[in-house]
């Protein structure tokens, strides 16, 4: 009996230190904690990464509002980061503890959505465009405009992202280019355009996997897409799709890591953030999801020249041409309400 007790005690003492090194719980997009680069981090840091995936930016608020203490880090996009700050669920970052912070493209550090009262709440991580995409074998003349998603000849072969971004798309088609500051009348016009388009739409896609399935099953030939992601998944399935930025321009997005207020796992969280901003994390996500990197120095160091060019890392004009998502604040309701009204028709 006594020997068992001693053995148990010894065992628990030996197991103790491994235990104490802790975990970091992240609520994030698929691919952002891919084993290809996270396994090494877990080994190096002794921090176990436990990930829960979201399907949309809309998942962050409900998950965090239903009580804290579950997640340590989250990765909302730049249109949702301000909401997280407003909700009071995230805390300011200690940017001095983040090596590589000064290598982030200045354009991203200038974004208002990740800062408040002189403090940064979000660490830029990856970016890309909401490009458009078509099936190569379905077109003789490649589409170049958003108006091609309103082409009656493509009836039943069109898909559009089930998101308030549909309003941004329709507004640009209408020639309203200040898409994040639309007036009520402009939103009404965008709504009318989407209602007009509705009979041509096969299905509004809600998840990345759903859009891939729609192309794979031959249901749709043109849609918008998260540039780099679904097209590479489709390429792996042997379906050739081409991404394009329409003449009306495309929206751009950036995802940022945010630290959940009063996390008990701060040490592991900062180790994790440092890794994500380093070559390991920056090229990790570029290789897995096909998204561009925010750390200019890291991208230069770990990408091949081809990948560096393909992800527009050397092309500041490309970034400037994108309509980077902006928090809508009080106007958020007007946009979502208009999109819901379109779907209700």
């Amino acid at each position: 009996m006594k020997r068992t007790l001693t053995a148990t005690l010894a065992l628990s003492l030996a197991a103790g230190p491994v235990w104490a090194e802790g975990t970091v719980n992240v609520l994030t997009w698929e691919g952002y904690t891919d084993a290809s680069f996270i396994a090494k981090f877990e080994e190096d840091s002794g921090c176990k990464v436990s990930a829960t995936y979201v399907g949309s930016n809309d998942d962050f608020a409900p998950k965090l509002m239903s009580g804290g203490g579950v997640y340590d880090l989250i990765t909302p996009s730049i249109d949702t980061t301000a909401l997280m700050i407003d909700l009071g669920v995230v805390e300011p970052l200690d940017t001095a503890a983040l090596a590589g912070w000064n290598d982030i493209y200045p354009k991203f550090l200038a974004l208002e959505g990740i800062q408040r009262d002189g403090a940064y709440y979000g660490m830029p991580y990856s970016w890309g465009a909401i490009a458009f995409m078509y099936r190569k074998d379905a077109f003789t003349t490649p589409p170049t405009s958003i108006a091609d998603l309103w082409n009656p000849e493509l009836a039943g072969k069109i898909s559009l992202w089930d998101d308030k971004s549909a309003i941004y798309v329709a507004a640009r088609k209408n020639g309203d280019m200040d898409i994040y500051n639309l007036t009520d009348a402009q939103i009404e016009n965008a709504k009318a355009a989407l209602v007009e388009q509705k009979p041509l739409v096969r299905k509004y896609w809600a998840t990345a996997g759903e859009l891939v399935d729609l192309y794979k099953a031959g249901e749709v030939v043109i849609s918008n897409t998260w540039a780099g992601y679904q097209s590479s998944l489709l390429a792996a399935e042997g379906i050739e799709v081409v991404e394009f930025i329409p003449t009306e321009g495309a929206e751009g997005w950036m995802d940022a890591w945010m630290v959940v207020k009063e996390t008990p796992n701060k040490e592991c969280a900062y180790k994790f953030l440092n890794m994500q901003l380093s070559e390991q994390g920056q090229c990790g996500v570029a290789n897995v999801n096909g998204y561009s990197a925010v750390n200019a120095a890291a991208a230069k160091a770990c990408m091949s020249p081809e990948q560096f060019a393909a992800l527009h890392q050397d092309d500041p004009d490309y970034l400037d041409s994108l309509f980077i998502w902006t928090p809508l604040g009080e106007r958020f309701e007007a946009y979502t309400n208009a999109w819901n009204a379109v779907k209700a028709q």
Partner: peptide, 16 residues
């Protein structure tokens, strides 16, 4: 679009 989907939207994306 059915009613349960609309409820889901209000609790999710619309945050209402």
């Amino acid at each position: 679009n059915l009613i349960a989907g609309v409820i889901q939207t209000q609790f999710g994306s619309a945050l209402n």
